[in-house]
Simulated assay, not measured.
Amino acid sequence: MGIRALAGAALIAALGTYAQADPLRIATYSPDLSRDGPGLLLRDLGRTGKKADPQIAAVVRVIAETRPDILLLTDFDWDYEGRALAAFTALLAEAGLDYPHRFAARPNAGMATDLDLNADGRQNTADDAQGFGEFPGQGGMAILSRHPIGPVTEYTDALWRDLPSHLMPPLPEDVTAARRLSSAAHWDATITVANRPLHLLAMAATPPVFDGAEDLNGRRNHDELAFWLNRLPDQAFVLAGNLNIDAQDSEGRPEALTRLMAHVTDPMPRSAGGAAAKGGVNDGQKGDPALDTGDWPDDKPPGNLRVDYVLPQKGLKVLDSGVFWPADGPLAQTALAASAHRLVWLDLEWP
Score class of each variant (00 low, 15 high):
residue 282 N to S: 08
residue 310 V to M: 03
residue 268 M to A: 15
residue 310 V to D: 03
residue 260 L to K: 00
residue 262 A to G: 09
residue 282 N to T: 03
residue 277 A to L: 14
residue 274 G to P: 02
residue 265 T to E: 04
residue 290 A to W: 02
residue 276 A to N: 09
residue 309 Y to H: 13
residue 257 L to R: 11
residue 260 L to S: 07
residue 291 L to W: 10
residue 315 G to K: 02
residue 263 H to K: 09
residue 292 D to N: 13
residue 263 H to I: 08
residue 304 N to I: 09
residue 270 R to C: 08
residue 264 V to I: 04
residue 306 R to Q: 10
residue 263 H to Y: 12
residue 257 L to V: 11
residue 297 P to I: 06
residue 255 E to N: 10
residue 276 A to Y: 08
residue 288 D to C: 01
residue 274 G to I: 00
residue 303 G to D: 03
residue 309 Y to G: 09
residue 304 N to W: 13
residue 254 P to D: 06
residue 270 R to M: 11
residue 288 D to A: 00
residue 279 G to E: 03
residue 253 R to V: 12
residue 287 G to D: 06
residue 275 A to L: 12
residue 300 K to F: 10
residue 276 A to G: 05
residue 256 A to Q: 03
residue 283 D to L: 01
residue 305 L to Y: 07
residue 269 P to Q: 05
residue 266 D to G: 07
residue 309 Y to C: 11
residue 302 P to R: 08
residue 263 H to P: 07
residue 259 R to M: 11
residue 275 A to G: 14
residue 261 M to P: 13
residue 292 D to K: 08
residue 287 G to F: 08
residue 296 W to H: 14
residue 310 V to W: 05
residue 286 K to A: 15
residue 296 W to L: 14
residue 314 K to Q: 12
residue 263 H to L: 07
residue 301 P to S: 10
residue 274 G to K: 07
residue 288 D to E: 06
residue 294 G to N: 15
residue 269 P to M: 08
residue 288 D to F: 01
residue 311 L to G: 06
residue 310 V to I: 04
residue 272 A to Y: 10
residue 275 A to S: 12
residue 268 M to L: 15
residue 310 V to T: 00
residue 257 L to K: 07
residue 298 D to P: 14
residue 314 K to F: 03
residue 296 W to F: 15
residue 290 A to N: 03
residue 311 L to P: 01
residue 314 K to I: 06
residue 287 G to W: 02
residue 286 K to W: 13
residue 270 R to P: 07
residue 307 V to G: 06
residue 274 G to S: 07
residue 304 N to K: 13
residue 290 A to V: 07
residue 274 G to W: 07
residue 284 G to M: 06
